[in-house]
Amino acid sequence: MAENYIYTVMKKESLANSIYLMDVKAPRVAKNCYPGQFVIVKMDEKGERIPLTICDYDREVGTVTIVFQAIGTSTKLMAQYEVGDAFRDFTGPLGCKSELIDMSMDELSKKKILFVAGGVGTAPVYPQVKWMKENGYNVDCIIGARNKELIILEDRMKEYAENVYITTDDGSYGFKGNVNECIKDLVHNQGKHYDLVIAIGPMIMMKFVCILTKELGIKTIVSMNPVMVDGTGMCGACRLSIGNEVKFACVDGPEFDGHLVNFDEAMKRSQMYKSEEGKKVLREKEGATHHHILCECHEK
């Protein structure tokens, strides 16, 4: 890591196996960001540009919180960063703020909102729930994951949501079943009524939530995470079919009306670079000897 990198990690926390939270010093981003927006980080000269949703921010201290899952080359390298290490680049805020932020108080007070968070998608849900509470609105939130170990941010969420429902696929914690079964249980068995659902998680989860909420007649907002490069509308890599239109997730989104999103196309597109992974795996394997973040030859 080069000395002139300025986006320093101020805090690091392990939230679950392979899921990390970091507060990163980035005053310009912290000053103007809102829930729903994202940043693009780049570790070093040769790294990828990695989009990550803003999970929290402290305008006074000038930090932005990110939560990421170490799933591939770049995010695994990121997981090795400790407090005091720094990113070469940290751009943002990008994308539009959540629709909720600009909704009138009148409108918001009439709505009963259910947030549905899946896995690492709990991170982008959290600032929205927090924002709602701080502005005086009570919301419900489902946090779903495969098993107990992958449930994150539960305590923090409970501080701000009126009701938090935990659900795990294997029943190791909370309700047993996927988030859809949990939604059905709330609506059908527990007499809950919702006017708006905000679902953020794996694409496949959002797809099935949208199928269900369409049946239930509840408007649903989702946050899309297609492959991106620049994040400013310049490359078109992030394009999605929304209704009859083509939209760029980085500037028109990342949040969209879930009932209009063509999920099948989006899921196919997000597989596009899978076959390219060989090259990255190679660098990852060499990583131990060759690409350790503290290795000097790596900074060329």
């Binding site: 990828e48 490359c235 078109g236 196309e265």
Partner: peptide, 27 residues
């Protein structure tokens, strides 16, 4: 929107700015 359709900007950006042609870069 099929896989394998790119804007020239994306193709060139991956190759020039992100240096995809150089195997030591991640993109």
């Amino acid at each position: 929107n099929a896989n394998g359709v790119f804007s020239a900007n994306e193709y060139l950006t991956r190759n020039n700015l992100m240096k995809a042609f150089d195997k030591s870069y991640d993109t």
